[in-house]
Amino acid sequence: MRLNVTVNGRPQEADDVWEGESLLYVLRERLGLPGSKNACEQGECGSCTVRLDGVPVCSCLVAAGQAEGREVVTVEGLADHAEQRSHAGGAHGTSLDEARQWQARGTDSQTGEGTRLSPVQQAFIDAGAVQCGFCTPGLLVAADEMLERNPNPSDADIREALSGNLCRCTGYEKIMDAVRLAAARQPEGV
């Protein structure tokens, strides 16, 4: 079948999708977006978490066809998503001023240095919340969504919101630190 889905703001089309394929498989293997991870493929680990029309879901449990005509945000689109949110209320897209000031960003192909990051992504790096990093994309999408709903979470709120995301490396302490840091770094009134 042919699948039409908007991913990270861009309309995408995938052909010859087998009906049994998951959204995760289509993202990873057909759309060139392997950031969403495949740790369990049974909805237990949360490493494949994406936003489907704004709602966090395990993309491994979403049949590709269920995403037809819908909007998906993956970890690859998180920085853009956060930026758009911070401009929310105003017009979408690039302002004329921004367009005039645009310049190519030099990014280091090995380390990704110079890449624009969302606040929660930056906080994960700064707090040491990344070790092997396999759980990180799903945790980032889930944590970003929680901070969108609840900008001042208690520790218990953070734990509850991230309880569907397994991490085997960190013991979660640095992940707690990262989310607290991202929350603290938010501008007043958000």
Partner: peptide, 12 residues
């Protein structure tokens, strides 16, 4: 900080 941190948080 980790040299691979940015790549890991962007999915790259």
């Amino acid at each position: 900080l980790r040299p691979d941190g940015t790549l890991k948080v962007t999915g790259e």
